[in-house]
Computed example of a mutant assay.
Amino acid sequence: MAKIIQFSANPAPEKFGPQRARTKKGEEGVKPNQLNLFTGGKIVKLNHLSPFEEALLTDDHDDKRSARLLYQKAIEAGDSVADAYCNLGILESQEGNNSKAIDCFTMCLKHQPRHYEAHYNLANLFAEAGNYALAKLHYEISIEIEPSFSNCYYNLGLTLALNKQYKEAIEVLTKYRELTPTEDHKQTDDLIFKLSGLL
């Protein structure tokens, strides 16, 4: 007789939401994978914000309508085009315009194929639509580009679990545990335990 193990965690595991592009890629003085000692601070030029910086600041203040217009202005001005498309895609997905969101993320990737936030956000959209194969592909690409981005491991683990790839899900969730502080492990440990029972 088979033993039945309930898969639904209580509460259900939550996936991490969209990842907004915050800075221009390739800025001088910013080294990839280096700890930023000034996290949370923002350097504001005394003379003028670029169109992308203005859009990001507006978006941070939850003025989505104005942010959308300013991201489009940044794209037209050639200012952080990939990042602007990525953040515009997030705004579209938050309003349920998934086809427009996918278009924005793919335009981002057209301008910068290794834009890990766009791959991650595309993966989230595909996972929500139940297309686990495409979600898995984009999560894996995002991890390949930015292996220290822990949220991607967690969401990939959930996607693998939903696709009944339990062993792979456990491996990815274990990697997530390695990248996160101990206080974030309870829900992940519960999920790994339940998945282990399904092997």
Rank of each mutant, 00 (worst) to 15 (best):
G89Y: 02
S66K: 13
D83F: 10
Y154K: 15
S66V: 11
D63P: 07
L122W: 03
V81A: 02
L122P: 06
L49N: 09
D60W: 13
L125F: 08
E92S: 02
C86Q: 04
T39N: 04
Y120F: 14
E76V: 13
L88G: 07
A129D: 11
K42P: 09
L160V: 14
D103F: 13
S99N: 07
I90R: 02
A55S: 06
Y116P: 10
K100W: 05
N36G: 07
A123C: 01
G130E: 06
L57Y: 02
G130I: 09
M107T: 00
F126Q: 07
Q112E: 10
T106L: 07
L57M: 13
K110N: 07
L56S: 07
G41A: 10
L35D: 10
N131K: 03
S150K: 14
N155R: 12
Y85E: 09
N98R: 04
N124Y: 01
N131T: 02
N36V: 04
D60Q: 15
L91D: 03
N87M: 06
F126H: 06
G78W: 09
L56T: 00
L137S: 01
A74V: 14
I143T: 02
E146W: 11
Y71C: 12
I102Q: 02
Y116I: 15
H61A: 15
A118T: 00
S66E: 12
L158M: 04
N87F: 09
N47F: 03
S150P: 10
D60C: 12
E128V: 13
C108G: 04
K110L: 09
L137V: 13
I141W: 00
Y153N: 08
A67G: 10
A101W: 00
Q72I: 14
C86M: 04
